[in-house]
C-alpha cells in the first residue's frame, strides 16, 4: 500500500512539475521539507526522553498495569489481542489522555511508547498487527476535548468567542473516530 502511495506522490508530482514548469520550486521544496523534518525530530528528542523516562518509572512500579486494569472494560473490545493487564494498555491510556487534553508534544512520545509495547506482542515485527492498526486509526482520527492550538489561533485573531468551536470539534472528531474504527474492522476482514 505505502509503496504505491509513495511512488504515486513522487512520480505524479515530478511529471506534473515537468509539464507545468515547476521543477525549480520542486527541487527547492524537497530540500526544505527534509530540513524541516530534521527540525521536527530534534524538537521531539526532549519530550521523547522525558516521557520514556517517566514511562520506565511507571513500568518498574507496576503503575501501567494499574492503569491497564482501569480501562480494561473498553480495551477488551478494542484490542482483543492484548492481554488484560499488559503494559501496552496503560501506555495507550496515557497517550489518549494526552491527546484528549491537547498536549500534542507529549501525545506523540506516549503514543510511540504504546506502539513499542504493542510491537512486543506482534508475531510479525515487520508488519503492523491488528491492535497496532486500531491504535493508529484512533490516533489519526484525532480524539480531542481541547483543540488548544486552534483556540490560541482564534484568540490571536480576536474572535469574539474563541471557544465556541469546542463543541463542533468534539462532534466532528467523534464521528471520525467511529468511522475509523468501523473502517478498521471492515478492512481487516477484506485486506489480504
Amino acid at each position: 500500500m505505502i509503496n504505491h502511495i509513495w511512488f504515486g506522490l513522487i512520480s505524479i508530482g515530478i511529471v506534473t512539475a515537468m509539464l507545468t514548469g515547476n521543477m525549480g520550486p520542486v527541487s527547492q521544496a524537497v530540500l526544505e521539507s527534509v530540513e524541516e523534518g530534521a527540525m521536527i525530530l530534534i524538537r521531539l528528542i526532549g519530550p521523547m526522553s522525558l516521557w520514556l523516562g517517566v514511562m520506565r518509572l511507571a513500568e518498574e512500579s507496576n503503575f501501567v498495569e494499574l492503569l491497564a486494569k482501569l480501562i480494561q472494560p473498553v480495551t477488551k473490545r478494542l484490542f482483543p489481542e492484548v492481554p488484560a493487564d499488559h503494559p501496552a494498555l496503560g501506555a495507550m491510556m496515557l497517550s489518549f489522555s494526552a491527546n484528549l487534553l491537547g498536549l500534542g508534544n507529549s501525545a506523540t512520545p506516549l503514543g510511540i511508547k504504546a506502539m513499542q509495547e504493542l510491537q512486543k506482542l506482534n508475531p510479525k515485527p515487520e508488519e503492523a498487527s491488528n491492535s497496532m492498526c486500531t491504535f493508529l486509526v484512533i490516533n489519526t482520527s484525532s480524539i480531542t476535548l481541547l483543540p488548544a492550538t486552534v483556540i490560541s489561533l482564534r484568540v490571536a485573531a480576536e474572535s469574539s468567542a474563541p471557544m465556541e468551536i469546542i463543541g463542533t470539534t468534539i462532534f466532528a472528531t467523534t464521528c471520525s473516530t467511529i468511522a475509523g474504527l468501523v473502517a478498521d474492522r471492515v478492512l481487516r476482514k477484506i485486506w489480504v
Binding site: I2, Q119, P125, E127, A128, C133, T140, T177, L187
Partner: peptide
Amino acid sequence: AVGVKKSRYSIIAGLIADVVG
C-alpha cells in the same frame, strides 16, 4: 519508531476517518 514497514490497511482507514471528520 518500531520498525514496522508494512502498514497494511491503516492509511486507508485513517483517510476514511479524515473524510468523515
